[in-house]
Design a protein around this nucleic acid. Structure first.
Length: 289
DNA sequence: CTGGGGACGGGGCCC
DNA sequence: CGGGCCCCGTCCCCA
């Protein structure tokens, strides 16, 4: 029988990249500087940037047919150049640092296809890097008529660069591309909050004053204390039984139901627990029995 | 072996 | 943002 792990919601190993545990103890800039960013596709906007305009103008960066998924490996800044690498060549482009780029309005602009790059570094201007997370490590997409900044992961679109930046920082980036590893075990989580909560299962800060048993969360301790006091606040409306745990009452209520929650697809027999259904199926369901 | 109770872990939601 | 609570679920144990 395949046993589900107790921590069934744990993110499994989808990446080898490990975050810096220091972020658990501090909410400093380490949150944004110590993590390893994954490479994700990036579309060079074909219209001017709403921020500082320091990104390379699209009309300056044609799309070589032989160039696939080049890496931007040099941090661009004003009045400098941008090197793009592919497996076959390296191309250096001057940067468009001004909204007054004369090529911006060229006829070729309307026929430009979105260009895909892989960003492996923080691509922002240093002034922006100081205050914002790296939003470009998500999808940025635009059309000629209406520029939008679209999250590569969830495809949510924003009209402003900073809008996407905030979205990436608060919601999507970590959830989609970063996994937080427990320093005490090998479990990984998709959010920092989930990891913090998991770590409590190691540190067990909530201690029972009666027996000394420790728990990860206060309400778990409260439930445990009921085992000492005998308090059972959750009563069954169908019988005289009462329970200290609401989940256990819910499971008990299944015993009063003729139609249980979990149904065998073969014989339609129902079970109060999925584990009982699994046992039934593994034993070899016989619809005639 | 089956069914059920006790205890507890984890994410989501709300305040 | 963090705590409390809810819900879902598993594991262990016992009748």
């Amino acid at each position: 029988m395949i046993k589900m792990p107790r921590s069934f919601l744990v993110k499994k190993h989808l990446t080898n990249k490990k975050p810096n545990y220091g972020i658990l103890d501090s909410k400093s800039d380490a949150l944004h500087t110590s993590l390893v960013y994954l490479e994700v596709p990036f579309y060079i906007p074909s219209t001017p940037q709403p921020l500082e305009g320091w990104l390379p103008g699209p009309s300056l960066i044609p799309t070589p047919a032989s160039m696939h998924s080049p890496k931007v490996d040099r941090l661009p800044s004003r009045d400098t150049s941008l090197s793009l690498h592919s497996s076959t060549q390296e191309i250096t482009y001057p940067l468009s640092v001004s909204h007054n780029n004369p090529l911006r309005d060229s006829q070729s602009l309307g026929t430009m296809e979105p260009q895909t790059f892989l960003l492996s570094q923080d691509f922002r201007h240093p002034e922006e890097r100081g205050s914002l997370p790296n939003p470009l490590l998500g999808l940025v997409h635009s059309s000629v008529s209406q520029e939008r900044f679209e999250c590569f992961d969830c495809h949510k679109a924003y009209f402003t660069f900073s809008g996407l930046a905030k979205h990436r920082q608060l919601h999507c980036e970590w959830q989609c591309h970063k996994y937080f590893c427990c320093r005490y075990c090998d479990k990984e989580y998709v959010s920092l909050g989930a990891l913090k909560m998991h770590i409590r299962t190691h540190t067990l800060p909530c201690v029972c004053k009666v027996c000394g048993k420790a728990f990860s969360r206060p309400w778990l301790l409260q439930g445990h204390i009921r085992t000492h006091t005998g308090e059972k606040p959750f009563s069954c409306p169908h019988c005289s039984r009462a329970f200290a745990d609401r989940s256990n009452l819910r499971a008990h209520l299944q015993t009063h139901s003729d139609i249980k929650k979990y149904r065998c697809k073969s014989c339609s027999k129902t079970f109060s627990r999925i584990s009982l259904l699994s046992k039934h199926e593994e034993a070899g369901c016989s619809p005639l029995s």
